[in-house]
Computed example of a mutant assay.
Amino acid sequence: MPFALFIAVALSAAFTAAMRRHALAHSMVDVPNERSSHANPTPRGGGVALVLVFSALSTLLAPWLGWSATALMAMLGGGAVVAGIGYLDDHGDVAARWRLMAHFVAAFVALSALAAHGGLPTVPLGSWILDLGVFGYLFAALFIVWLLNLYNFMDGIDGLAGVELVTVSGGAALLLFWQGAPISASWLLLLAACGLGFLVWNWPPAKIFMGDAGSGFLGFVLAVFALWTGGEGGIGVWAWGILLGVFLVDATWTLIRRVSLGQRFYEAHRIHAYQYASREFGAHKPVTLGVAAINIGWLLPWAALATWFPGLGGLFLVIAWAPLVFLCWWFKAGVPESA
């Protein structure tokens, strides 16, 4: 497995470099505007390399590492739909309704595979075990679609989406190893390794951006992993909610705040907490490093507690999220810049 991880990092970095050359040759460049968080024209679409490398290595390594065909369908079947519509959007605007339709189709593919595998994980609430039954699939579909979209929203400064990928998947892999689930853990380590290769080119100052194809795919895959590994012997929905806290809280708070202020929620903007923070610090790197520190030093320990004491997972999530909510309030996430 260590050799496979090294290959994943190297291939991801090499393919990202190739995508950068392709983007420059075909004028696929993000030019800064009033909604941008960057100052210089930068190639986009580098996430395609991450998608291709992770998908190819997952398929090749599946028989060796014991990954089931059902799991591959859930991750890569639906993921291909998300990456495909994202790729089209990167090359020319696709109407929001068509993107949303494709996202729900991808969620249906993943949830069909999950149903065949044994169904959705239950939710521990103190001494109770909550099983949502058929309604759980509706909530799960909404969760998948929201996470893949918010991952796109949060991919707005150099290195942030890559750092989130590496720290969340790496942290989840560590917890799964502790839980005696090395097969799922090895798959998440492969995802983290692909993210490291991409970060070689996306680390501040970024030489290429991820693009919708990459960010949507990653949000989708992490959502499916959260549902797939949330059963007995896994790490549960509370732990995943904690690990993904930075992105979940910032994106959700910002959306709710914008709607409450009468803004058009579907319009592009740059008023997430992380975007305000990057302007206040005058650079992207301090915010990206700060998110890495929060994920590893604050959220991972609480996710571990939620894994070991699942009945108290909801309480641990509230405690873990509280400072994140405060930061959103402090940086005025969702409030227009002119306010």
Rank of each mutant, 00 (worst) to 15 (best):
P2L: 15
G171Q: 12
G119S: 13
A173D: 08
L138D: 01
A206D: 03
V51I: 11
T288M: 03
F143Y: 13
W253R: 04
G216S: 11
H117V: 02
P205Y: 00
G119E: 09
G133F: 07
N202I: 01
Q275I: 08
A141L: 01
A107V: 04
L50P: 05
H117K: 00
L125C: 04
S55N: 06
H269A: 05
L60C: 13
P63I: 13
P310F: 06
Y87G: 00
S27T: 10
T252Y: 04
L57S: 12
G162T: 12
R264H: 07
A62H: 10
A10P: 07
P43N: 02
H269V: 04
P121H: 03
L255H: 06
M154S: 03
M1P: 06
L317P: 04
Y151I: 00
A18L: 11
H22I: 15
R97F: 06
D93C: 03
L191V: 13
L299H: 00
I256N: 03
G297V: 03
L300V: 02
G262C: 05
F326G: 07
A69T: 12
S338W: 11
A268M: 04
A74W: 12
L305K: 15
L196S: 08
V325H: 09
A339V: 05
T288D: 00
W67K: 10
L114I: 15
I242T: 09
L65W: 11
R258V: 08
G46H: 11
T59H: 09
A25Q: 11
A304W: 13
G126K: 15
L218N: 00
V9I: 14
A306Q: 06
S27F: 05
T252E: 03
G311W: 05
V291F: 13
H103V: 04
H284D: 06
F217G: 12
W201M: 09
K285H: 15
L196A: 15
S186K: 06
A206N: 04
Y151K: 00
G233A: 09
F265M: 08
M210H: 02
F225W: 05
V81A: 11
L132G: 10
A25R: 14
F309C: 10
R270S: 14
A283S: 14
A140R: 01
L305A: 15
A239E: 06
H26E: 10
A14R: 05
A113C: 01
G77S: 09
K207Q: 13
L138K: 00
H272G: 10
F316T: 13
I144P: 07
M101F: 12
H38S: 02
H269R: 05
A4V: 09
Q275P: 07
G66Q: 15
A110R: 01
H103D: 14
A10E: 06
H269P: 04
A62M: 09
A115W: 12
L261Q: 02
V221F: 10
H91W: 06
P301Y: 02
V105S: 05
V48Q: 06
W308M: 14
V51H: 09
G214E: 04
D90S: 05
L138H: 01
P124A: 12
F331K: 14
A273N: 00
A83R: 12
L72P: 14
F104M: 07
A71E: 14
G92R: 15
Q179P: 01
D131F: 02
V29H: 03
G170M: 08
G119F: 09
A172H: 03
F15D: 02
W178H: 08
M73K: 09
G236F: 02
S338L: 11
V246H: 00
P336V: 02
A161Q: 00
L57Y: 14
L114H: 01
